[in-house]
């Protein structure tokens, strides 16, 4: 019986582990390897350069710029969609006519691809007939043709808004799931005891939503580290690298400038940041599990 179990385990796990090992784990290891080389992407020959790529990272002005942008992106991606999603979930968590319709509207953007989302928002930001400038013109009565995506000081934030529009539905859905886990009697007791709606929210609902918040925040951080497609579509990291992120910088160095060794070094740094975040997330999740069981 035991022997048979062992055979079945091996037989069933062989294919998934082989595919995952060969196309995910092995490349991951190799990334570390290539980050110590100067491979250019075509030439079969390359040299070992030791820590030169990592030394270059420290002095690379564009890398620093991309790191700062990634940090801005990350904070904004945590705050905006999380707050909005939480707000929507709190509003929707009651018997309302059309609640289903509202939910669909808010999470519809999740199933659109980054390319389409980018396309949609390029039109909103279009200087001459874009929705944003059109509205501004009507409201202020003055001429507005600010090129939102082509100006260094608005490009990154314009993309962040588009990104938040897409991601809000995801945090809303997670918060809605969390809210169904809060017993109604508990809130009734609070009401009877004379807690104001604000106190109920601050002292009861929000603390009980902690597990959902952990998931939402971790997702936002991880997704913002991956943030690439929508930037590629909307700004390409420009103008003047003002919206460049680490993921974008890594792509440009590796596949536009063909410095694959240097690109690998950037990807290693990106991976290590992600690992730290994931580690924190798992630890927090365990703590949350212990408290809320």
């Amino acid at each position: 019986m035991n022997r048979q179990n062992r055979i079945w385990r091996t037989a069933l796990l062989a294919a998934p582990l082989a595919v995952f090992g060969l196309f995910v784990v092995w490349p991951l290891m190799s990334s570390f390897y290539y980050s110590f080389t100067n491979w250019n992407g075509f030439n079969p020959n390359y040299d070992f350069v030791g820590f030169a790529n990592f030394g270059k990272i420290v002095t690379d002005r564009l890398f620093l710029n991309a790191t700062i942008n990634t940090a801005i992106w990350m904070v904004a991606a945590i705050v905006l969609p999380t707050a909005l999603g939480l707000g929507l979930a709190l509003l929707l968590d009651r018997k309302l006519p059309g609640a289903r319709f509202f939910k669909s509207v808010f999470y519809l953007p999740i199933c659109l691809s980054a390319v389409i989302v980018g396309q949609i928002w390029i039109w909103i930001y279009q200087p001459d007939w874009g929705l944003l400038n059109t509205v501004l013109r009507h409201v202020t009565g003055a001429e507005h043709n600010w090129a939102w995506l082509a100006r260094p000081n608005t490009a990154l934030w314009s993309v962040i808004v588009a990104w938040s529009w897409q991601q809000t539905g995801l945090s809303m859905v997670i918060y809605l799931a969390g809210l169904t886990g809060i017993p109604g009697d508990l809130l009734e007791v609070c009401e009877i005891e004379g807690a104001s709606p604000w106190q109920r929210l601050r002292r009861v609902v929000l603390p009980l939503l902690t597990p959902s918040t952990v998931v939402v925040v971790a997702l936002s951080v991880i997704n913002s580290l991956k943030g690439f497609d929508i930037l590629y579509i909307m700004t390409g990291g420009g103008p003047f690298n003002s919206s460049d992120t680490l993921a974008m910088h890594m792509y440009n160095e590796s596949f536009a400038k063909f410095r694959m060794g240097y690109g690998s070094a950037i990807s290693v740094v990106l991976f290590l940041i992600a690992m730290v975040v994931i580690g924190l997330y798992f630890r927090q999740l365990r703590k949350v599990d212990r408290i809320y069981g």
């Binding site: 196309f23 490349p27 190799s30 992407g41 991956k226 596949f255 690109g263 690998s264």
Partner: peptide
Amino acid sequence: FRGSNALFLVLVAGMFFPPQAILVPLFRM
């Protein structure tokens, strides 16, 4: 089996890391 939980965690962790971390080696492969 012994260690299956650890293996499971490793597999699941795969969905968190940025795809940029495996771009170059996969391209080369």
